[in-house]
Design a protein around this nucleic acid. Structure first.
Lengths: 128, 128
DNA sequence: CTGCATCCGCAAGGATACTG
DNA sequence: CAGTATCCTTGCGGATGCAG
């Protein structure tokens, strides 16, 4: 199947499918949280420790969204002090593959892209 | 290679690689523009016609970003009225694969995800 | 035809303080 | 420990008008 025909999957219904997934994972922290949970069950603080720079607020929000989408499972233990553990669901685990594919592309193309950016900026001489 | 080991590509350097690519393609129009240009060289108006809902401003911005990243080539013809044609570069074409992979995931998992959302919202009874 | 300039609303995301 | 509440800044993206 040619790339041309496959790209119809993106344009598909006016881009609703791709828009949906980007709304879901295109934000600042979602993919990082998913990748961090990959293979490990983990509690809130541990998660925050492993994701440098994320605030409590954003970690909470990101986890709630993922839970709502059924990609992450949240388990509360009735203890004092409270303990909450997060893990990927089976559905959530299936996201790793496509995400890694994208990351590989990013890593591979990054030098080329940065060089292009440099040339572009040089051409426009720092205006803008 | 297990998914666990591969997911290190995402967390990698604190997520800079994945962050970079999402900043690049995670916005509202970029992937749609790339998919629309896949296999076709095309001028500005034609592009806008094929992407329902995009404004002139956003199409221009998106194309400039893509040009700066070296994913799209912009060719100006010295004519009156002016004619400008856009096409994917070789680098830009390599983005189609990973993007399609993601779209396929979205299409496949969408029913599951929407069901989960419905259940989640029902559980919380419309509060929030 | 192909843009750029301007204004504006909105939502994402950060900082901080507080709570069960 | 695991959040919630509040405030604030920033930048995306839409609408409109003007220009080469």
């Amino acid at each position: 199947m040619s790339s041309y025909q496959r790209s119809c999957l993106i344009r598909g219904d006016g881009g609703r499918a791709i828009r949906g997934i980007l709304d879901r994972i295109g934000d600042k922290w979602t993919l990082l949280v998913v990748a961090t949970l990959d293979g490990d069950r983990m509690r809130f603080t541990e998660l925050q420790r492993r994701i440098p720079g994320i605030s409590q607020r954003m970690l909470t929000r990101t986890l709630r969204h993922l839970e709502r989408d059924g990609l992450v499972e949240r388990e509360v233990f009735a203890e004092v002090p409270p303990r909450v553990e997060y893990s990927l669901t089976d559905t959530g685990a299936t996201l790793i593959g496509p995400a890694v594919t994208l990351a590989e592309w990013a890593i591979e193309q990054n030098p080329t892209i940065e060089r292009s950016q440099g040339e572009y900026d040089a051409r426009r001489g720092g205006r803008d």
